[in-house]
Design a protein around this nucleic acid. Sequence first.
RNA 1: GGAGCGGUGGUGGAAGAGUUAACACGUCGGCCUGUCAAGCCGAAGAUUGCGGGUGCGAAACCCGUCCGCUCCGCCA
Length: 599
Amino acid sequence: MLDKYEGFSRTHGAGHLNEKNIGETVSLCGWVHRRRDHGDLTFLDIRDRYGLCQVVVDPKISKTAFDKADPIRKEFVVGISGKVVERANNAINPNLSTGRIEILAEEIKIFNEAKTTPFFIEENITADENLRMKYRYLDLRTQHMTRNMIMRHKLIKCVRDYLSDNDFLEIDTPILCKSTPEGARDYLVPSRVQKGKFFALPQSPQLFKQLLMVAGMDRYFQIAKCFRDEDLRLDRQPEFTQIDIEMSFVRQDDVMQMVEKLTGYIFDKTAGIKFDTPFLRLSYDEAMDSYGSDKPDLRFGVKITDLTENFRNSEFAVFKNAVAEGSLVKGLKMEGCANYSRSEIDGLVEMGKSFGLKGIVTVQYKPDGIKTQFSKAMSEEAVKKALEPLEAKDGDLLLIAVDKKDVILNAFGRIRCEIGKKLTLIDPKKFSILWVTDFPMFEYDDEDKRFVAKHHPFTSPFLADLKYFETGELDRVRASAYDLVLNGCEIAGGSIRIHDRGVQEKVFAALGFSKEAANDKFGFLMEAFEYGAPPHGGIAFGLDRLLMLITDSPSIRDVIPFPKTASASCLMTGAPNLVDEKQLKELAIKQITPEIIAQ
RNA sequence: GGAGCGGUGGUGGAAGAGUUAACACGUCGGCCUGUCAAGCCGAAGAUUGCGGGUGCGAAACCCGUCCGCUCCGCCA
């Protein structure tokens, strides 16, 4: 028979009690974390969001309470009243914040019983993801997950506090939006009222926030839910949260300075991490040339070194010929790895192949000379001369390869990260933040045979580069876009936006939109630009990824209360699910067979 | 769309194709007044994800399928 909560009232959180409460009579409510039954004396650990506290159930204090405790098992929901007492010296538990005190139970209420849980609610959960996701509410009971949820709250509160204090307005924007081309696949919602038509869930509030600037809101932010129907990854969920920010009458530096202050505030308040300002800035070209990535991890060195000119006229025909055809020669140095075995070196070459390289030439700097495939065509002197920029010393291993610019930079960028991991060059306590700027505006899409926007089509090109629209050299147009990168992870991205109809039309034209198509999809935006649109720009943080870094979580699922699995389903509720024929009929939707889909 | 890894009592996790599918934790019962991963004694609990196949014999090998995880493609 369960007890009613009527007549009982909680006075403290279990984890909040300490020596100051000694002598007080308190009431706790919570879950029974563990029960230790010594026969004529029982210990109950009561757990709530605030922590854990030991309750002593002694028949000499209360026989009624003692009998009541008999059937209590793990995860029962109970209420305990009793006096807080100091523990004997030899009974102190230094692992608990409440370890110097305990409660002598005078009254026990059982508000609910609990079946044996499908997995243990303890710190290092080893249970299968399947189970954790199906019983997410149990998973969230662990201290670890509770802490992550508290961090999530703290982070959001920091953002609200800081931005509110700096004249930003929190304004919400629609979830039922218009499907527009470009970008990720949309989640669609059928309209019942207008049969055959669909809403799309927002991939981001991009256009709304720009229109809020046109509306004169001046400074806006939102903790915004965003939806992208693409495949999932360790750090990617179909439904995620952005800290979305937009400001009027700003240049790129104004946004960046504001973001540096906000970021500093967030990291200091949530994790006690302080950054030096201004943050390091690298241009996109610098980042790509030195690190092979537009989000380089600068917690360790290992720069990519260019050797193209040194091999332009070399004896090594493979490199010489490739360079003549426009390929680049790049090198990476692995300090102290000259003694790698044949199989370790083969492993590196294989890695290169998996990243798209045809091969890698290795050079081992040993005390008795160098060992390398270059020797077939070049003297040791010539090899050393060609590789001088890498400044190798005895004991080092060099990786050299040739390929088209994008291929080799991408491959070496990834190998660089593998080297960082393999040689444990990364200090796990270090936080390395930087801006990457001056992105190219467009990128050629081989599949669609057209240029696409690297950031998004509302990003302002450098005004100085507008001339390339006329000459058709779209790959030379730079964008006023900036990414904030922390430990090799893009945590925020933003840009100065176009606020001029003419420029916006040029960009759409460059992307291959007809005037009609541009008007049909984005006419409302361009029309708004004709009614006094202020210069504006902004940024959006990936809140979940930010939390992953702050909490040092191995997966984005660990910082989202109810995440989706890799196949985008919710194992707890069973979403997505089939719906009634009747519901479909109301929406004028007819299901088609897999055979038709395959066509 | 493609690739890799995994799925064994409630949980974790063993098991060269060969008797009764280890072990630990949990659960249940008993003993026990200072534990905090309590301890001690005992018991129950599994058609090895699902469906085929090979074979005298399959948890194991093969094929298919479902689910989870990771990666590539994809993610302005």
